[in-house]
């Protein structure tokens, strides 16, 4: 039978999960020039998933993920490898990085490196891995029934 988690955990999760996800996205985006990056952001998003798991169990995690955990992992690997091959497509070396300068007038200007795309891949791999671990290893009693 399933034990209902404490009220504190459930209520806490409601505020924590969105915050954690926003911060993890922030870390992912700034990662190229500042502390952060795909791995750290992915781990933080994985932490958010862990909170969801603690408050709602396996079902909550499954319903939160849009696609199966393995597919997130695969999509991440493909994004990262596609970025790596991207260098070849533009006649440069494997894993070579490019940069895109965006000038949006009033909104300021950004420079977006292809390293960001690679980081997105890493982010997805880590999230996929953490959710696979949660779904496979967490709460084995529930799985066996």
């Amino acid at each position: 039978m399933k034990v209902r988690p404490s009220l504190l955990v459930e209520t806490g999760a409601r505020t924590m999960v969105p915050t954690l996800l926003v911060v993890s996205a922030f870390l992912l985006v700034v990662g190229h020039d500042s502390p952060g990056g795909g791995f750290v952001g992915g781990l933080l998003a994985g932490g958010a998933l862990l909170v969801v798991f603690l408050s709602g169990g396996r079902a909550a995690v499954t319903s939160m993920l849009p696609v199966p955990a393995g597919a997130i992992l695969g999509a991440g690997i493909m994004t990262a490898v596609a970025t790596a091959i991207g260098g070849l497509v533009f006649g440069r070396a494997l894993l070579d990085a490019g940069k895109l300068e965006i000038d949006a007038g009033w909104f300021g200007s950004w420079s977006v490196g292809s390293a960001l795309l690679f980081d997105v891949g890493v982010f997805l791999v880590v999230v996929g891995l953490v959710s696979t671990v949660l779904l496979q290893l967490g709460d084995p009693e529930e799985r066996e029934e």
């Binding site: 695969g74 690997i77 493909m78 091959i85 494997l94």
Partner: peptide
């Protein structure tokens, strides 16, 4: 030719990703 050598590592990795997604 450097492209071919790079692809030797990249092709299996693409296959890993596809095999997980499909």
């Amino acid at each position: 030719m450097t492209t071919v050598v790079s692809l030797l590592v990249a092709v299996p990795l693409v296959a890993v990703g596809l095999a997980l997604v499909l």
